[in-house]
Every structure is written in C-alpha cells, then in structure tokens.
C-alpha cells in the first residue's frame, strides 16, 4: 500500500530525508512541467523546480497540513516561477527563449496530434499566443490544463479566490480564442 503524502511529510518533519526523496520522486515531473510552462526555458525550469523542492524541505517543519501537500508545494514552485519570469522579463538575455524547441519535442513523444498542415499552423499559433499571455493568465491555464486542478486548488496555489480564477481563465481563453480564431 502506498504511503500517503501526509505520512511522508510527518517522517520528513522527524528528520527522515529519505521520506522527502520519495515526495520529490512523486512530484518532480509535475512541478517541472508547471514551471516549464511558465518559464519556457528547460534549464532554468529544472533549476527553479529543484530550488522549489529545496525551499519546501527547509519549510516543511512549518507545514501543518492545513492544505494538501501538493497544493502547498505547487504554491512554492509557482510563486518562484512567477518571480523568475519577472526577472526573465527584466533580463531577457539571461534566459534562452527555447520554448518552441521544447514544445517541438513534446509532440515527438508518441503520436503527433498535429499531423496535418492546418493543425501544425494551429500549434505554432498556439505557442505564440501562450507566450503572449500575462504570467497570471498563463499560470491558471497551465494549472488547469496540465494538472486539471479544480478552481479551489488553483486559488489556494495562487493566493486568490475561486471567482478570480474563473475570471482569469475566462479572459485567458478569450485571448487565445481571439488570436487563434482562424484555426478554431
């Protein structure tokens, strides 16, 4: 039977680093994907994701279980990614804009869902449109689409109400829809 997150957290609070390693292996890919969606830079995303786990490790004694572990962890990672993206905008030369390359590879995994020319254009347009979103809009789109999180959890992660999440998602989708009107 799989040990619950909360049990692992308690072991971790008692000083068992191996319990934290288990938590890292459970969430490393998800956290990386969310950060990558926000930062568009693979190396920077790996660095931010690892730093987010490190911060979680340092703060774990203060985690009382008021929310689920993953919500708490996502909050740390998303906030760090948002801060990193703001720095990225201020110092664009420090980061490489290689999201297009990353996204190219994402679709080589299995069957390419964008097989025909029209869909490939849609994909290119979609990447450009996602890149143009504000960091707040991008965050709700990624948390909803990549993770399929409910609005309540997204609100907890981003520190806003469910109503704000609903509104941000609506406007983010609207912006994407307007930019991709020709393809939809």
């Amino acid at each position: 039977m799989e040990v619950s997150d909360w049990d692992l957290v308690q072991k971790c609070q008692a000083g068992e680093t191996s319990a934290f390693q288990e938590l890292v292996s459970r969430y490393q890919q998800k956290i990386f994907m969310v950060v990558l969606g926000l930062l568009r830079d693979r190396e920077a995303s790996m660095d931010v994701a690892q730093e987010a786990f490190f911060r979680a490790y340092r703060k774990i004694k203060g985690f009382k279980g008021g929310s689920s572990f993953y919500t708490w962890l996502y909050r740390i990672a998303v906030n760090m990614a948002i801060d990193a993206q703001r720095r990225q905008k201020r110092n664009p030369l420090d980061f490489r804009e290689n999201m297009d390359g990353v996204l190219e590879e994402q679709n080589e995994v299995e069957k390419d869902p964008f097989s025909n020319a029209h869909d490939k254009e849609l994909r290119a347009g979609l990447i450009a449109a996602i890149n143009d979103l504000t960091v707040e809009h991008k965050a709700v789109i990624i948390l909803r689409t990549v993770e399929g999180l409910p609005y309540k959890d997204i609100g907890e992660i981003l520190g806003c109400s469910e109503g704000t999440v609903m509104s941000r998602l609506h406007y983010a989708r609207k912006k994407l829809q307007v930019k991709l009107k020709a393809f939809l």
């Binding site: 590879e105 994402q106 995994v109 979609l126 996602i130 789109i141 689409t145 991709l180």
Partner: peptide
Amino acid sequence: SLKAVLVAGPS
C-alpha cells in the same frame, strides 16, 4: 489543442 501542446512531456 492546449492539452496536446502542454501536457505531453518533453522527450
């Protein structure tokens, strides 16, 4: 389309 682009992990 968003799912297809964002959800698949980089290879």
